[in-house]
């Protein structure tokens, strides 16, 4: 699981997908593709975006949800907690009790 997580985060396009899902969770493949091409000027095929989403899903960072005839992609940041816990710096607050 940890390897999948670090592999998923190692790619800038996948991090951009996570940025966009942070702005709004629950997007169709079409919306994700539109955001990448029109907001970020990334020339990337729909098939390639699908593959990136599959990697993110394998890492648990993206979950898909079927609703009637549509399929939506939701963000799940829970796996990121492993990182903060693994390299927790003594004397600092953990990710959960952190204050702004």
């Amino acid at each position: 699981m940890a390897d999948d997580l670090f592999k998923a985060l190692a790619d800038p396009t996948r991090r951009t997908i996570l940025d966009e899902l942070t702005e709004k969770s629950g997007q169709t493949l079409f919306e994700i593709c539109s955001r990448l091409s029109m907001k970020h000027q990334l020339g990337i095929s729909r098939q390639a975006v699908s593959q990136h989403l599959a990697v993110l899903e394998a890492a648990g960072l993206v979950e898909t949800r079927r609703e009637g005839r549509y399929k939506f992609h939701d963000l799940n940041t829970a796996p990121l907690r492993q990182i903060a816990e693994r390299w927790h710096v003594p004397g600092t607050s953990g990710p959960e009790e952190s204050t702004p």
Partner: peptide, 15 residues
């Protein structure tokens, strides 16, 4: 709606 209004660069779209 399957996509609420989003500013996509110069164009705003919804589906």
């Amino acid at each position: 709606f399957t996509q609420e209004p989003v500013e996509m660069g110069p164009v705003t779209t919804a589906v």
